[in-house]
Write a protein that binds this DNA or RNA. Structure first.
Lengths: 140, 140
DNA sequence: CTGGATCCTTTCAGATACTG
DNA sequence: CAGTATCTGAAAGGATCCAG
């Protein structure tokens, strides 16, 4: 059951660079940033610090509740920093930390993949769905 | 509301390579592979074709139901191919397509980030939680 | 403006049982 | 072996109201 994880561990201790797709490691990062909003916010904040309401307007479809919760968890993990200006009315800015920025890079790679392949996926789906439709109709 | 998306569009039309973190594009890829199992399976299958039951045993914690559903959606998007051998007992193998393999790369980058930074995140969380605990106790 | 607290709905995903 | 179908509990997430 853990043969491949074991193998990866050996490889890592030997070469250092080759971790391959360890399911457990992958799961840990997905549990962390695989939710609906974390990567979106990391991405948006990558362009510069933003205020709460600004994020609320910019992130398409997020609710105040989820924005609060997600920002807290990002702050907890040290990916985002919270800057409070004790003014009236209160002002709070959020910015990515250097640590968060290091995550921003692989995220950007994923975004690029998405941008490059949106159309391909749409095409594939149409083909698949059409084939499935024929399977039902066309049982001669 | 769409100022930055607009800006990205301009940049893209100019340079081509610079898409930045477009929230909508990022959302589209997250809706696709941001679920609990897609990336895990893509990762596992990256090592070579595997059978249904094999995946069931190898992916830590997946249920038969979710394995079926996830494989179907990956197949629909053209990321995974289903190979049926009409034997008794039936045998079915799954393999990543070249298209799926192209996704595997940015995913691997993310996994690497996770592997490299697991410990940092744990540390950050401990610090954050401890600070929060002090905030409550220590209100002198 | 920036949230916290509460309620409530929808979706996700596991357990179980059944089929070719 | 490789699934499908149904049922159900858990969890994510939106709406709303309240507070500093």
């Amino acid at each position: 059951m853990s043969h491949q994880t074991e193998a990866d561990r050996v490889l890592r201790s030997l070469g250092g660079a080759c971790i391959e797709h360890d399911p457990d490691v992958l799961r840990s990062v997905l549990d962390r940033v695989g939710d609906k909003w974390s990567l979106i916010l990391i991405g948006l904040l990558g362009k510069g610090p933003m205020r709460f309401t600004e994020l609320l307007r910019t992130a398409p479809g997020i609710s105040r509740r989820m924005l609060t919760l997600t920002l807290r968890s990002l702050e907890r993990d040290g990916l985002v920093k919270r800057l409070i200006y004790p003014e009236i009315p209160p002002r709070v800015e959020y910015e990515v930390t250097p640590f968060g920025r290091s995550l921003s890079e692989p995220v950007l790679a994923l975004t690029r993949w998405a941008a490059d392949n949106q159309e391909t996926i749409r095409t594939n789906r149409r083909a698949f769905d059409e084939a499935a439709g024929l399977d039902i109709d066309d049982l001669d």
